[in-house]
Each structure stands twice: as C-alpha cells, then as structure tokens.
Computed example of a mutant assay.
Amino acid sequence: MESGRNNDVVVVGGGVIGLTTAVVLAERGARVRVWTRDPAERTTSAVAGALWWPYHIEPKGRARAWALQSLDVYEELALRPGATGVRMVEGVMGETAVDEVAWAAARVPGLRASTAEEYAGSGLWARLPLIDMSTHLPWLLERLSKAGGVVEERTVTGLAEVDAPVVVNCTGLGARELVPDASVRPVRGQLVVVENPGVRTWLVSTRAGGEMAYFFPQAGRLLLGGTAVEDEWSTEPDPAVAEAIVRRCAALRPEIAAARVLEHRVGLRPARDAVRLEREPLPDGRVLVHNYGHGGAGVTVAWGCAQETAGLVDPAV
C-alpha cells in the first residue's frame, strides 16, 4: 500500500476487533482512522475475561483457523507480558475431552486429560494465552499510534456517512442498527472481580448443574464468571447473579469464598449465528468490509480475522 488519499481506511468500532484490525492495516501501509463511540476502556472488550479459546463461534472451520493464527501472535506477545498484557497460563477446560480438540493438538503442546487432583470432573489441561484487557487495549492503541493510525471518538449513525474509500465495519453489537443486521443479538455476561487469594491456574467448568463457572487469575486479582444470557440488554450488575457466581467458583476453589470483592462487570457479547467477514462493494464505488459477530470469542480470533480483513481490503486500496 502506498501513502495517499486513495488508501484511506476508516475502521468503525474501537473494541479489540476494531483496534486489532486497524493495527494490521496500518502496519501494512494503509492510512487508518478508527471511529469509535466509546473509548477502548468502555467497550465490551474491556470487560472480557479473556482466555484464548473459540467459545461459541461459527463457522467452526474458519473460526479455528482464525484462532490458530491469533495464537501465533499471542504466543509472541506473551514474551512481553508486562507491556502487552498477554501471559501463557495453565488451567483446565472442564467437560472437554482431548479428542474434541484434535484441531488444536498440533499447535498447543501438552494438551492432555486433567487429573483428579487438578479437576474433580472430566477436563482438559492446557497452557493457553490469558489476556489482561486493561493492559492489552492500551497497548493496541499505542501500537496503532506508532503505525500512524488515529483514533477519533465519534458516533456513527450510518455506515454511508463514513468519508473514506474503504470502510471496515467492526461495530460488534452496533451492527444490529448500523448495517442493519437484526441477526446480531446481545449475550449478557457478568463478572465479579476479587482479590486473588493465591490462585495461579485458570478453570472453566459447567459441572454445577450445567451452569458456567470460571476463574482467570490476573495481576493482583481474580476474575470470576460467568453468565451467558441471550437477548438481555441490561448492563447493570445483578447482586443475586454476582452471589451465585462467587458461590459456584468457591465450590471449585474454597478460598475464593472469602476473597474481597473489588468490582462488578457486565458486558454484552455481540453474538450472531456466524461471524460476518466479507467484502461488500458499495454503489458509489467505495468498499465496505464487514468484520463482526464474534460473540464471546473476539479476543480469541482477533488477529486471524484482522489478517483476513486486510486481505479483503488490499484489492481496494
């Protein structure tokens, strides 16, 4: 890509999908602006757990390819955890058998069945990227800035109003109104952040009557979850839900019961039956590339989706 007006790209959406996509485009030579309604720390991405795992995302084949491409990047970023917020951490994916993850076995060394000491149920022991979004999002912003990208806080009421030859739609839940795409829907997730009582490994479990429980250790704190309530728009923490989350997690690690609560978080995952990642020529000759509908797996597939998006943008600039 050569510099100049004809390779201007506006990425609409400033969450992890939008920022990662903008970084890849800017580092390939495009002149990139990100238009975002909210600063990064107030996006859904800021609330994310965020463990690398293709959680409830379709189509499975493409999602797994995006996830593995992203894994390559996260493993490299984990060499500088203090700067990037990415660490490789061991833990158990409960109610998951080794043969269910054959697609990842060649790339995730050491995948094995968990032992009874590690988890009372049947699970998978793995060493995976765990991303601290409070560090990772500012790092993405800094990397974008170094590549010449600019972030502008502005509200977009329609994609047609974006004044660029190439528009990349990374609006997540906002795509429901902006495209419009009624198939995009919220899946509400609630977290409880507590002081870490010494937990060093992560755990995801559905052992408690099919209800989800997970904990992810971050610097000085432990993130407890979670919920996945479809078509629920409220972002207010529910005290009863918070109590249930702590109770389920404490059933797995008793020391969590006495941990001091630091914060409550709620995020709306931008779910869709399948990720929409495709190029759409506009009637006026401009190009629109869609990259949304990642649900709770946005962090997991961000780099793979960004690279594919850049490939779709390239012919247009």
Rank of each mutant, 00 (worst) to 15 (best):
P281F: 00
V187P: 03
V166R: 15
R64A: 10
G210L: 02
E58Y: 13
S70V: 04
A258K: 04
T201R: 15
R37D: 12
E230T: 05
G174E: 06
L144Y: 07
A63I: 07
G82K: 07
R185S: 09
A22W: 04
L79Q: 15
A97L: 12
W35E: 10
P59H: 10
P81C: 01
P239G: 03
G226S: 11
V24P: 07
L282F: 00
P254L: 03
E118W: 00
G293L: 06
V167D: 06
L282Y: 09
W103C: 08
L51P: 00
E243P: 07
P165T: 09
G285N: 03
V289L: 00
D238A: 04
R154M: 11
V179F: 13
H264I: 01
K146W: 00
T21P: 08
I131H: 11
L128F: 09
T84I: 09
A104I: 04
E76Q: 14
S45R: 06
R127K: 13
E90Y: 03
L111C: 11
E255L: 11
L252V: 01
L79R: 15
V299Y: 06
T201N: 09
D238H: 04
A40T: 06
V167R: 01
V10I: 14
V162N: 03
D38V: 03
C249H: 05
A46H: 05
L51S: 05
E280C: 14
G226R: 02
D238R: 11
F216Y: 09
A67Q: 11
R80A: 13
Y214F: 04
A257F: 10
V194S: 00
T235E: 10
A105V: 03
P129G: 02
V86N: 05
A228R: 07
V16S: 04
M133R: 02
S122C: 12
T135V: 14
L77H: 07
R143D: 00
E236F: 01
D231L: 13
A259I: 00
E90T: 14
L130F: 00
V299H: 09
F215A: 06
W35Y: 11
T155F: 02
A83K: 02
A306N: 05
H136K: 03
V193F: 02
L277D: 09
A219H: 11
P109Q: 08
